[in-house]
Write a protein that binds this DNA or RNA. Sequence first.
DNA 1: TATTAATATGAATAAGTGTTCATATGAACG
DNA 2: CGTTCATATGAACACTTATTCATATTAATA
Lengths: 120, 120
Amino acid sequence: MADHVPSDVCQERMVHPENLEFVRREMPDFEVLCDMADLFKALGERTRVRILFALSRTELCVCDLTEILGMSSSAVSHQLRVLRASKLVTFRREGKNVFYRLADDHVQKIFEQALEHVRE
Amino acid sequence: MADHVPSDVCQERMVHPENLEFVRREMPDFEVLCDMADLFKALGERTRVRILFALSRTELCVCDLTEILGMSSSAVSHQLRVLRASKLVTFRREGKNVFYRLADDHVQKIFEQALEHVRE
DNA sequence: TATTAATATGAATAAGTGTTCATATGAACG
DNA sequence: CGTTCATATGAACACTTATTCATATTAATA
């Protein structure tokens, strides 16, 4: 009967301590994980995915994007703001137009994996 | 003065038609893009990123996850539900425990790219 | 300078989402 | 069978967010 008597420490739950330690050792910092979540949050929206996919083909001005998406320039502009904040796009001004492009090619690679996952 | 007279079609905006056509030709279907957005939406949350990172190291039961995250089992369970719905995790039952693991390794590759993007 | 086109932004509203709390299910075990 | 532990789920609340509308900015141009 003695074999289920708790040790000096309280029994708690039936966890797997070796797993806990292993995982804790390898987990990135909480902040880094939050930054990643924020990045995915920026990617996790219909309009923004469509914008990014369009920009993955070629540089485009806001006006082009409104045509491609069939949305108001205000709505597009608000979403571009989010993408700018996440450093997913950069832009340059040329006269009255502002041209947007992808900030780097991480997005493309992430999209490739996501496409594969979706198409299974 | 005749050179800015509209043609038979109304003038609309100063878009770049060659870009529009090029992008439209290459864009995946709207549905596919929505599925991708939903995938990123599932990835775009602190708790879920932490869960997935933990599972990327080893299979874990819900109880282990509550310990690692320092959260209630209810909160964890609700998030696992979302991850299940997005087919990001699978699970198997073993007695009273339910063990979760990543559904495939797309997530790992996506995480690698995201980490690189965050660390720049 | 006044006007117009392209883009940006603030406020407001409607829809979505994460956690907690209470409760339910499901399995082992006395 | 009744209890206990592990997990799941429904409802509610607080919080976030995407779009629209109105308005501001910025640049070209008459």
